[in-house]
Amino acid sequence: MNLDYIVREPEHITPETSVLFMLHGYGSNEQDLFSFRETLPQDWIIVSFRAPGSTQFEGYSWYDINFNNPDEFINVPQATESLNSVLESILKIINHYGITQGKTHLCGFSQGGILCYALALQYPEMFNLVACLSSYPEEKLMPAIVKDKKKLEELRFFVSHGTDDAVIPLEWGRKAADLLYDLNCYFTFREYMSGHGVNQKNYMDLMEFFSK
């Protein structure tokens, strides 16, 4: 399925141009993370996807969530379908711009971050910088995590979580640090005094990560 998205293009696009793909959280939309574009590198293509499912208040979701049952916190078939759509759309867009040498980056918040983990750890050779904000790695979406250190060595993760997150517990976010450590991945893990969101300090650290 082709996903809707909005895009900011740099003045010049070459085969070496980098692309950043953004995946918003549950109940949000493609405008949300796209607001980061002002402070992201000017020579990147910035693509922000809209999730395929709809929620109340004109929001969108990558999959349904059952808040009453932790075992069904994630609708696996829907999430898997969304993952495939994102992957397909990423490949199409990279192909459309003729990017053969450029780097491909990911940034996801909450549900979007969960999908970013699944994409990066299953297709590591496709990606470089990966930011997962207020999210966690969901094992049910990663039937096969690539354990080959050689394939994982190009990945750089930025993981952030609010200490008072009432939607996705901090403990879940910390799982990412354990997993990435076990996989020998390069990663930064930061906790911020905030709820389920990105505060000013978190934002500045994230921009520094992407501009390095």
Rank of each mutant, 00 (worst) to 15 (best):
T163Q: 06
K92Q: 15
S211W: 08
E154F: 06
H105T: 15
I145H: 12
P137C: 13
G59S: 08
Y192E: 06
C185I: 07
E38F: 13
E88C: 07
R190V: 08
L83R: 06
Y181C: 09
E11K: 14
N184Y: 07
K212Q: 12
T80K: 12
E125H: 01
A144L: 15
E153L: 15
E16S: 14
L87Y: 13
F210T: 06
E30R: 02
K103P: 05
A177Q: 14
F57T: 10
V159K: 00
F158N: 02
T14W: 00
Q56N: 08
E171Y: 01
C185T: 09
L206M: 11
V159L: 13
E38K: 05
N84V: 11
Y186C: 05
T188Y: 13
S54A: 10
G108C: 04
L170S: 02
M207A: 13
S135K: 08
R8F: 05
D4Y: 01
P15R: 11
V146F: 02
N202C: 10
S28R: 05
I13E: 00
R8I: 08
H105N: 15
G112I: 01
Y123R: 09
S211M: 15
C185K: 09
L183M: 06
L106V: 15
A120D: 04
Q31I: 07
S18I: 10
T17L: 07
E139H: 15
N2T: 07
A120G: 06
E11L: 12
I168E: 00
M22G: 10
Y203V: 04
N184C: 09
F73K: 03
N69L: 10
L115T: 02
F34W: 05
P70E: 07
E81R: 10
H12Q: 01
F127M: 03
F209R: 09
